[in-house]
Amino acid sequence: MKPGTFAAFVAPSVVLMILFIAGPLVSVLVQSFYVTRQVFETTTVENCTPGFLAPVCTTEARSRPKQKPGGGVETETVFVGFEAYRLLLQPDAVAAAFAPGGGGFERLLTIDFYKALRFTLTFTLITLPLVIGLGLAIALAVDAAAKRLRGVLIFASLLPFIITPVIGALAIRWLFIGDGILTAALEAILQRDIALFAEGWTIEILMLFYRVWHVAPFAFVVFYAALQTVDQDTLESAIIDGASRTERLRYVVIPHLMPLIVFVALIHLMDSYRVFEEVIGFSSQAHRISLQWLTFSFLMPDETGNRSISRASASSMLTMVGIIILLIPLLMRTWRDHRRKR
């Protein structure tokens, strides 16, 4: 294909990606060094209260938002360097936390950014083996099930995957919240009062459960499709060699699935690093927040209607650094494959 034709085919897509992905990225980077704020001016106000003989007057200096000539509040955008990052990372507080008697990690995790980072990372790492394990187990089980049942099983498994994430999280929350049906069942079994939404760690377990429930079907479908292409000759020779069921799984099936396990793991790392909907669905912001939610909360207007764009930009940039670190191994592998092919 000639370069010109190639360009014609990809142009619309490339233009969209430059305008709406690369463009915003650059603007976020720039925004993170600037802050837009209201201009305040100091005025002296004289307040007089009626008094005997002469009114009692006090003068005080007040600062108030400067009004624009045409109405509205005047704003200015100033370069602040790494101020937004500093506000987010709070190096002073970190230093104080690790100073003797500062409280160490416990103190550190009260700062929003580290709280979000901690949750995002543990969330990603804990769900990863669970998703792969459960996905593989379902795939092997469905593969062993009767042919007539497989369609129904796949249909039932696809539902948790296809459902709107916020709605899926809500569905699970409604089963547990207050005296929800499953909380009541747990209380009956354990013979004690349970309030799952009062503490951070119980909510976190529910969030982990939701994510595994939501993503395991994806792993299942990928593994199941690959199971159909396992080399039957190798399996047969393994049987002739007297390999037991577990040995066949260990030495024939798993190696065959290995590239796909890596693939699912990578996709899962990327996706669960973006954890966000769980925080909304379980309303966990008082206890557990994620990096994406942190940015989201800066972007939502606060009580006065202001959005802290500058801080949102800084936290976006830091989130991005994380995803790039996650991606480096994948990119290096792709590059090696590409070079080998040429």
């Binding site: 994406q292 991005m320 996650l326």
Partner: peptide
């Protein structure tokens, strides 16, 4: 591929 991995909040901030 890199763009696909970007958290959407990063873009929305822009």
């Amino acid at each position: 591929l890199v763009f696909r991995a970007l958290p959407h909040s990063v873009l929305v901030t822009g």
